[in-house]
Computed example of a mutant assay.
Amino acid sequence: MAGEPSKQTILVVDDNLDNVEILRAFLESRGYVVAEARDGKAALARLDEVRPALVLLDVMMPGMDGWEVCRIIKQHPTHGGTKVVMVTAKGGFEDKFEGLRSGADDYVVKPVDFKDLLGKVERNLAARGSQA
């Protein structure tokens, strides 16, 4: 439930360890459980393991990029309803459009404005709760 963040897991997917640790510290300080993956393949493998309520997904990663990972998540028979927020330095109109086209539920541009990020996390978790 949206009012019980400590029971919700957020999967942070980013190949930059510093970004992962910053997001982890921020989210855990607000009561969320944070799981991590360093690339797209690892993120997809962790879906069944951690069953996240939300995925914070970088775009520019080695191997499989975030757009492809998002499309796979959204087409997944079990995890297709998982909320995905793109968190990326790619902030142009075309990039945001591609994010929406790939199925992303929201978009945050790096460097991250943490107030904005928290609002999007809370809004997407609340929307997910109302669909459950």
Rank of each mutant, 00 (worst) to 15 (best):
T88F: 04
A89K: 09
A89I: 08
A89Y: 05
K90T: 06
K90S: 09
K90H: 11
K90Q: 13
G91N: 13
G91E: 11
G91L: 09
G91K: 13
F93D: 12
F93C: 03
F93M: 11
E94A: 14
E94H: 08
D95C: 06
D95A: 12
K96W: 04
K96H: 08
K96M: 13
K96V: 05
F97V: 08
F97M: 12
F97R: 13
F97I: 05
F97W: 03
F97D: 09
E98V: 05
E98K: 09
E98G: 05
E98W: 00
G99C: 08
L100T: 06
L100Y: 10
R101L: 06
R101C: 10
R101A: 10
R101D: 11
S102M: 02
G103Y: 03
G103N: 06
G103R: 05
G103L: 05
G103V: 01
A104N: 06
A104T: 05
A104C: 09
D106Y: 01
D106T: 01
D106M: 00
D106I: 04
D106R: 04
Y107D: 01
Y107A: 00
Y107P: 01
V108R: 02
V108K: 00
V109G: 03
V109R: 04
K110E: 02
K110I: 02
K110S: 02
K110Q: 06
V112S: 04
V112W: 00
D113Q: 05
D113S: 06
D116E: 12
D116W: 00
L117D: 01
L117S: 00
L118Q: 13
L118P: 03
L118K: 09
L118F: 10
G119C: 10
K120T: 04
V121I: 14
V121L: 07
V121M: 08
V121K: 06
E122C: 14
E122D: 15
E122T: 15
E122H: 13
E122W: 04
R123V: 10
R123C: 11
N124G: 11
N124P: 10
N124W: 04
N124F: 05
N124E: 12
L125T: 10
A126G: 12
A127C: 11
R128H: 14
R128N: 13
R128Y: 14
R128V: 14
G129A: 12
S130E: 15
S130Y: 15
Q131S: 12
Q131M: 15
Q131I: 12
Q131Y: 11
